[in-house]
Design a protein around this nucleic acid. Structure first.
Lengths: 334, 334
DNA sequence: AAGACTATTGTTAACGTGTGCATAGATGTG
DNA sequence: CACATCTATGCACACGTTAACAATAGTCTT
């Protein structure tokens, strides 16, 4: 089959050890011997057997990239950006193994031998157990997108509180005073953070949110739709609505049109996430963009650093979000 | 560190050979011995070292999923569906290694030892060399999404010719007779197939396409925009336009609005691909959906069959596309 | 010139697993 | 009872690589 270092050794008239050293550019080997061996290796189209290497070096050359789920729930754009980001960092140094956490029936097979490091793109609190498992096994780990405080686990995520603050501030700066909120799904950290940021903005500008201007939501189209219907039925309608994600924003916009009103003329809408479709809906959605690709890049970089330098700092990195202004917010005269 | 079969052997008072056989459920071992060994293995939290296994069994337990590019060009939805499809088939039998072909500086490291099989989601003719390389190395291979005729290579793709035929037929059936075409990018197989299918439909219904009703395109927004402007400037405007992909359709719709006209009232538009945003634009785009997830599932299934049964049939499987009727086509009175 | 040191290469074992062959005991057969 | 057969297990080696230690030859030191 394929050539091994022993084949090369025979042809070069040296021991296989010498070949191993030569190909790993060891300073022990004479330069001309190295060169001779390299040429023979080239001729034989030699490729090292990584399984053998892994076995003795105790490294797998594998990096795991785990998502909460692959089968449903993860948005395509999110998924794509995450893989892109990580891939751009590791290139040919590691193999990238993509998995859905919910595909595991047992974490048993996740060992130090099979993964040099793992990146978890976490989208749910249910990911706790696997994070624990990996941390216990002592596998270098970075968790993206969701705050985590397990010891020794790196953590990179976007500052959603700050993003929501900006979105709120933006509405105020455009002249809005009657601003309503459609909240995210209960129990999701992101829902809490976004709500907090928005509220902080309102507080900062001295704007009160009456109870009637708050509606719970489930992060889906339908709940956004219902919430907006509720707002529209009020005596005194809000002039702007901050939705904790784009999908609810879409539902909300739909409700506005159904009521014979216009976005943004009659009511302004802001979303969160900058989903793929946000730029394509009518009106194009003003929203908060999370720097997914940057997050995954930073995460991958930190993971590699951790693997190679064996640093084990628990460190949380918050990256700034960006407000993407499109067409769904109206400038109000004061 | 972690337990090995030798550790288990010591505790069980047997040789490591017996442990190996027991854990692989060999019929050579007594049932009670097996059970005893299994229990000890469980207690030690034993996980086989896959590197060692791979070395002796000459199998990697790795499946490669290669895209033409990860860094740009691949659409997020496409990417997501492909990974989902493959993942749903392999589950825990293999590790899924995701790569961009353009990340390889040399294919040298792609060997039979490191991949039990490879799935290429091909989006460009430039993928020829890597397909050749893999086929030469004798690695089981399936190419998705693009026709390929290398010997021994499985091939699964959607029947785009048929999809375009249906789209054309649909327009005719809605009463359209003046139908224009914006072509795909020259040199892309898909561009040819879609054009062929559309033309066959027109021919089938005895409809002529005047030269002025044909415009070249580049599969991007801008070229769709320009082409539509051209059509709108004609003395006798078409009532419907078939665009060889959604992005051009989007550009075309934009041009219609800019001219103060309406889609679909004044002019109908059909796209191809059912991109993520197709459902969200206004009007929602009628388009042809390629069964990406099904393609990748079928591809993965065939690959596994190939790996395990060592069948080596060159077989092409064409899967039917689906016409997604939304709001961008007007019904005309005859 | 003898010992110490350096540069280069070889010998051998190790990583963890699977397998062909040998072995020992049990069982069956005539 | 002698022999063949079967069952359950062990021994030794193999997979391809790296690395600790050994060995050799040449060079330097005093």
């Amino acid at each position: 089959m394929s050539a091994t270092i022993k084949d090369i050794a025979k042809l070069a008239g040296v021991s296989h050890t010498t070949v191993s050293r030569a190909l790993n550019n060891s300073p022990l080997i004479q330069e001309e011997t190295k060169e001779r061996i390299r040429i023979i290796a080239e001729q034989l189209d030699y490729t090292p057997n990584y399984n053998a290497k892994s076995l003795v070096l105790d490294r797998s050359y594998n990096l795991g990239l785990f998502f909460t789920t692959l089968s449903n729930g993860t948005s395509a754009g999110f998924f794509y950006e995450a893989i892109r980001g990580v891939n751009s960092v590791i290139r040919d140094r590691y193999q990238l193994i993509v998995k859905g956490i919910d595909d595991y029936t047992s974490f048993h097979s996740i060992t130090k031998k099979s993964f040099d490091g793992i990146i978890i793109v976490s989208q749910s609190d249910d990911d706790g157990p696997i994070i624990e498992h990996i941390a216990n096994k002592g596998i270098p780990l970075v968790v993206l997108n969701r705050p985590v405080d397990t010891a020794g686990v790196l953590n990179v995520l976007s500052d959603e509180e700050q993003g929501a603050f900006h979105a709120g501030a933006f509405l105020v700066n455009q002249g809005h005073k009657k601003i309503a909120l459609i909240e995210g799904r209960k129990g999701f950290k992101s829902a809490q953070n976004r709500k907090d940021g928005f509220e902080r903005a309102m507080e900062h500008y001295g704007i009160l949110i009456p109870a009637s201007y708050r509606m719970p939501g489930l992060y889906d189209l339908e709940s956004g739709h219902q919430a907006m219907q509720q707002f529209l039925s009020l005596e005194e309608r809000p002039t702007a609505v901050f939705c904790c994600n784009d999908e609810m924003a879409l539902g909300a916009i739909k409700a506005v049109f159904e009521a014979g009103l216009q976005v943004p003329k009659d009511i302004s809408v802001v979303g969160f996430d900058d989903t793929v479709f946000a730029a394509y809906v009518t009106p194009a959605l003003t929203t908060v963009r999370r720097p997914i690709e940057q997050i995954s890049k930073e995460g991958a970089l930190r993971l590699l650093g951790n693997i190679e330098n064996k640093l084990h700092a628990t460190e949380q990195l918050l990256l700034r979000t960006e407000l993407i202004v499109r067409e769904s917010v109206q400038v109000l005269q004061a």
